[in-house]
């Protein structure tokens, strides 16, 4: 055991030694990056890759901490209520920061409780159905729903998640009068959800491209549409613009960095710098692209606008279809 400790210790020392000292006011001590979702998920992988790159540029380590629970709410609340000295920040995600605020009435936070410093990763939505489902196009799927809404079901990872809202929004865009009549099958995890469609327990799934990439590559699921502007190489499916529904391009997953509302300026500025460095780091870009994401850099204003717009579109849908949750 001693030798293991020594190896671990040595690698820890190496990691610290590799960091050049920066004479900045921030950070004064290790920074905690809270990921409100589980280990191994897309938010987690994006955040860990980010801190991997930033380790070289920060005078103190940045630690990824998973605080899982309630579709991202538990972790988000913990940052909203954290000491606002800039040393606790959040990897905010589409689910926790646009869908949940739009859907859940008793959510213990609002968008105003956070200061966004940037969005660094986008992840389009792909809808897919089982390879043997006999459904080849999104129109066929929608016709099937129109004929008999009860015979069709879609999976999600719970209420207030991108998977649920994306499915409803797409059905709404295609003129399905009551998307709520279609069975919503909530599962506990993204892998489980996609597996349920593959195994034939549900008809279709709409989720981040990264969660479906391996199923599509293995020809277990058939992609029906993507919400990207251009076709994705790994997914042989039309874009929403090609299908005549460019308004669905708003359906995109994202990861950004946010602090509590009173995040000090020096922390916000430093994080902006860091995001710029990371998003132009070739290794980081390659890594995330391979996981199915698109690396972007949005400054605080752009991010705020992007998030606010997405929130308003979702909010309108939620109000119109009465999707809100007490």
């Amino acid at each position: 055991m001693k030798s293991i400790k020594r190896i671990l210790g040595a690698s820890a020392i190496l990691a610290t030694a590799a960091m050049p000292a920066f004479a900045a006011d921030y950070p004064k001590r290790p920074v905690t990056l809270v990921v409100p979702y589980g280990t191994g998920g897309s938010t987690d992988i994006a955040s860990r890759s980010l801190t991997n790159v930033l380790g070289k540029h920060s005078s103190h380590p940045i630690m990824v901490v998973n605080r899982v629970g309630a579709a991202g709410v538990t972790g988000s609340v913990s940052v909203a209520n954290a000491r606002d000295d800039g040393h606790t920040v959040l990897a905010a995600r589409v689910g926790s920061h646009t869908i949940n605020p739009a859907m859940k009435r008793t959510l213990p936070y609002t968008l105003d409780d956070f200061r966004f410093v940037g969005v660094f990763e986008l992840n389009a939505v792909v809808c897919a159905t089982g390879a043997n489902s006999g459904i080849d196009t999104i129109e066929q799927l929608m016709d099937k729903i129109k004929a008999d809404p009860g015979s069709v079901s879609y999976v999600s990872t719970g209420v207030g998640t991108l998977l649920q809202l994306a499915s409803i929004m797409i059905m709404d865009a295609y003129g399905i009068e009551n998307p709520l009549a279609v069975t919503h099958l909530p599962m506990r995890g993204g892998g489980e959800a996609a597996t349920a469609v593959f195994a034939g327990n549900a008809t279709f799934v709409c989720t981040n491209s990264s969660d479906l990439a391996s199923f599509v590559a293995n020809k277990q699921l058939k992609p029906l549409l993507t919400t990207t502007k251009e076709r994705l190489p790994a997914f042989d499916a039309p874009t929403v613009a090609e299908l005549g529904h460019p308004e669905l391009e708003v359906l995109v997953g994202w990861t950004g960095i946010a602090g509590p509302a009173n995040l000090p300026d020096e922390a916000a500025v430093q994080w902006g710098e860091w995001l710029k460095i990371a998003t132009s780091d070739q290794g980081f870009v390659d890594h995330l692209t391979r996981m199915g994401s698109e690396v972007v850099y949005m400054d605080p204003d752009e991010s705020k606008q992007f998030i606010q717009h997405q929130y308003e579109v979702f909010k309108e849908l939620v109000t119109r279809l009465d999707l809100s949750v007490e």
Binding site: L8, A12, V65
Partner: peptide, 8 residues
């Protein structure tokens, strides 16, 4: 926990 396991 803090320095090896990354749990602050």
């Amino acid at each position: 926990f803090t320095h090896i396991a990354g749990v602050p």
